[in-house]
Computed example of a mutant assay.
Amino acid sequence: MLINSSQACVEIIDGIRTDLLIQPFADRIFVQITQLGKVGSLIQVSMPSTVLLASNGVSDSSGHALPAPPAALQLMPLFGSASSEHLRSLHSLYAAQVATLIWCAGGHTLGGSDRRSVIVGIALRRSTPTVEEGFDEHERKTFHETMRVLASMLK
Rank of each mutant, 00 (worst) to 15 (best):
10 V>N: 05
11 E>A: 07
13 I>W: 12
15 G>H: 14
18 T>Y: 03
25 F>D: 12
25 F>A: 14
26 A>K: 12
27 D>E: 15
27 D>Y: 11
30 F>R: 15
31 V>Q: 12
33 I>K: 14
33 I>Q: 15
35 Q>N: 05
35 Q>L: 06
35 Q>P: 06
36 L>S: 07
36 L>K: 11
37 G>V: 01
38 K>D: 15
41 S>K: 11
41 S>W: 07
45 V>F: 02
46 S>L: 07
50 T>Q: 01
56 N>Q: 12
57 G>Q: 00
57 G>M: 00
58 V>W: 09
58 V>C: 11
59 S>A: 08
61 S>P: 06
62 S>K: 06
63 G>D: 00
66 L>H: 12
70 P>Q: 05
70 P>V: 09
72 A>M: 10
74 Q>W: 04
74 Q>A: 08
76 M>K: 07
76 M>F: 02
77 P>E: 11
77 P>M: 11
80 G>K: 07
81 S>D: 11
82 A>M: 03
85 E>L: 13
85 E>M: 09
86 H>I: 12
94 Y>K: 08
95 A>Y: 07
95 A>W: 08
96 A>L: 04
99 A>W: 09
99 A>V: 08
101 L>K: 02
104 C>P: 00
104 C>K: 04
105 A>N: 08
105 A>S: 14
106 G>K: 07
107 G>V: 00
107 G>R: 00
107 G>D: 00
108 H>F: 08
110 L>E: 15
111 G>A: 01
112 G>P: 03
112 G>T: 04
113 S>Y: 14
115 R>C: 15
115 R>S: 15
118 V>P: 02
120 V>C: 14
121 G>C: 01
121 G>A: 08
122 I>A: 06
122 I>F: 05
123 A>H: 05
124 L>A: 03
124 L>N: 04
